[in-house]
Design a protein around this nucleic acid. Structure first.
Lengths: 134, 134
DNA sequence: TAACTGAATGTAATGTTATTACATCAATTG
DNA sequence: CAATTGATGTAATAACATTACATTCAGTTA
C-alpha cells in the first residue's frame, strides 16, 4: 500500500469521476475539464491509464466508461490491491455498485486453473436494474 | 429451443465467425465479406445483433469483438438459452475459451439478490495467457 | 549552475468502433 | 390491393481511442 502523488491532470480526472453519479466516458470527462485547460482526449486517456494502474479508477468495458474506485472512503491516494472486482450496472439510472466476493473469486480461480490458464485481469459486469429502478 | 432460419447476411456473418480462429471485430468481418456484397458496417452490425439474440454469437466487451458460440457442435441454428457465459481470452494468441459453471452462476445470483438487483445480462471475461502461450 | 534525464504535457492528426437517418424491397396478411 | 412488417442498401456522422511528434517541467548529477 503506497500512496501516490497525483499530477494535476490525474487529480482533475479523479475528481471528476469521484463527484459523478454515474460512469463517465473519456470524452465526457474531457468536456467537464475544458475549463481547467483540457483540450485533447489524450490528456484524459493518459490520466485514466495511470489512475487505473494505481487502482483508483476502473474501466467498465461494457459501457466504455470509467468510475472512481468505491473502496476508499478515506480519500487518500492509496494503492490498494484488491482481487476481482465486479460491477452491477443499472441500465435505468446508470448507477454502478462495486462489489467483491471471495467465494466467486475462488470459484473462478479454480476454473481457469483447470484450463491451465494464467489470469491477468478479470472483468465481471452485471447489467440490469437496481433496487430503486425495478 | 426453436430453430431459426437465418437470412443471407446473418449466415455469412456467422460463417465468418465460425471459421475464424479468434474473435473478429465488426469491421474485420465487413472486410471478409466484401466479396459477398457487403458494403457498409451496418450490414454487419445488424446481422450480429440478431445472431446475439439467437444466442449464436457472443460479443466480447473487453475486445470490441465477436465470436461464434462454442456450444453447438451440431451446427443447427438452435436457440439455446444457457445461463452465464464466461470467456478466457489469451492475450498472446487471441484464442478464446468459453465456459459455464453453475456454481459461479449461483454465487453471482446470490450476490445480486442481496442487493435487490435484477440481472439482465452478465459479462465475465478473463484476460490472460492460455496453456500454449505460458 | 549547466547539462542531462525521465516523466508529464500539449497539440494535431488519424484510426477504430458504432449509430442515425432515410430510402427501398420482399413477404405476409387483412 | 393496401397495409404492415422485417430485411436490406447507402451515406453520413457520432463516439471512442491511439499514434506521432514537439515541448515543458522537476529532479539529478557533472
Amino acid at each position: 500500500m503506497s500512496a501516490h502523488t497525483l499530477t494535476k491532470n490525474q487529480s482533475l480526472v479523479l475528481d471528476a469521476l469521484t463527484h459523478a453519479e454515474a460512469p463517465l466516458s473519456a470524452y465526457t470527462i474531457l468536456d467537464k475539464l475544458r475549463d481547467h485547460g483540457f483540450r485533447a482526449p489524450l490528456q484524459v486517456y493518459r490520466a485514466l491509464e495511470k489512475l487505473q494502474e494505481f487502482g483508483l479508477v476502473h474501466r467498465l468495458e461494457s459501457l466504455n466508461a470509467f468510475v472512481a474506485c468505491a473502496c476508499r472512503e478515506d480519500h487518500d491516494h492509496t494503492h490498494h490491491h484488491h482481487g476481482v472486482t465486479a460491477f452491477a450496472i443499472c441500465e435505468d439510472c446508470g448507477q454502478v455498485t462495486e462489489f467483491h466476493d471471495a467465494g466467486m473469486e475462488e470459484r473462478l480461480a479454480v476454473l481457469v486453473k483447470n484450463q491451465h490458464f494464467k489470469t491477468e485481469k478479470t472483468t465481471i459486469e452485471i447489467r440490469g436494474h437496481c433496487q430503486n429502478c425495478i
